[in-house]
């Protein structure tokens, strides 16, 4: 039997007193588009950051082709939610900077980028500074940057958030084409319809735990619901919490200040388990 591309075993991530992820076990094989679906603060971004090797799990292991993921980062392509483009550089310079860091010669990177830029209708803008780019153009540039070194797996954090209909459709279409060409994509989103449209497999993350994992049909069968939205609601009926990282990063002063302002401090295992109205909209 072949080794899985990515193997996540018993992973938990704690920020101070707050558990952002608990008991995550996942196996990901190549050639799949996997959707990480969950609300704000569910733990999707933390899971992606662990897979990307930006953070270390508190417990558990994440192996890429049987090796520690932190040593295999050259095999990953990452598009973080913030895109992370330098506004004083052109789109191509942004892409080239990353591809050089991966040790890819400029001409090879250019050929690869040109190929995908046509699909994303971004060829004309590659020589422009990214300062004036729309959200959609930034997202497409970040995608090209992540693809320039030919990664084995692509991690996309909310790739269509804030995009207009056409741009979102273009991005989804590219992900579909990558899957058709045998690529592996992990795609974080809180739009269920989008996940259903793009992904072969949907992983529902809620309050730091994996609530369900399977194809859309399997999720419907598991929950006995008629549509995915109903299935999602039934799997995540407990209250959402705020982002664990936000709560955990508060220092003693911030906690004291909150107690001073509100008169109390949440406590217990999910100390950040506030009402859904307090959930941050950024993630």
């Amino acid at each position: 039997m072949n080794n899985p591309l990515l193997s996540i075993t018993g992973v938990a991530k704690r920020f101070g007193e707050v558990e952002a992820l608990t008991h995550v076990d996942l196996t990901i094989n190549s050639g799949q588009v996997i959707g990480l679906v969950g609300g704000n603060g569910a733990g999707k971004t933390t899971l992606l950051r662990l897979i990307a090797g930006v953070m270390e799990p508190t417990v558990g292991t994440i192996l890429f082709e049987g090796k520690q993921v932190s040593t295999m980062r050259s095999k990953l392509g990452v598009v973080p939610e913030s895109t992370g483009l330098y506004s004083r550089l052109t789109a191509w310079e942004n892409i080239r900077y990353h591809s050089r860091m991966y040790g890819i010669p400029d001409d090879i990177a250019w050929n690869r980028v040109s190929h995908f830029a046509k699909r994303l209708e971004l060829t004309e803008s590659l020589s422009r500074h990214t300062k004036g780019f729309s959200r959609g153009m930034r997202q497409k540039t970040a995608l090209l940057r992540a693809l320039a070194h030919g990664p084995d797996i692509l991690l996309l954090d909310e790739p269509t958030a804030g995009l207009d209909v056409t741009s979102a459709r273009t991005v989804r279409s590219l992900v579909g084409q990558l899957r058709d060409e045998g690529g592996t994509v992990i795609y974080s989103t809180h739009h269920l319809a989008e996940a259903q449209q793009v992904c072969d497999r949907i992983i529902i993350v809620h309050n730091g735990t994996i609530r369900a994992d399977g194809s859309p049909e399997e999720l419907l069968e598991l929950t006995g619901q008629e549509n995915l939205e109903e299935a999602y609601v039934s799997l995540t009926s407990d209250k959402s919490r705020t982002r664990a990282e936000d709560t955990a990063k508060d220092g003693k002063m911030a906690k004291w200040w909150r107690r001073f302002l509100t008169g109390s401090t949440p406590s217990g295992k999910y100390s950040s388990q506030l009402t859904s109205m307090e959930v941050d909209d950024d993630e």
Partner: peptide, 13 residues
């Protein structure tokens, strides 16, 4: 602040 650090930290260095 500009949100470029995360992409940088994902690089293989």
């Amino acid at each position: 602040e500009r949100g470029t650090l995360e992409a940088l930290l994902c690089l293989p260095c």
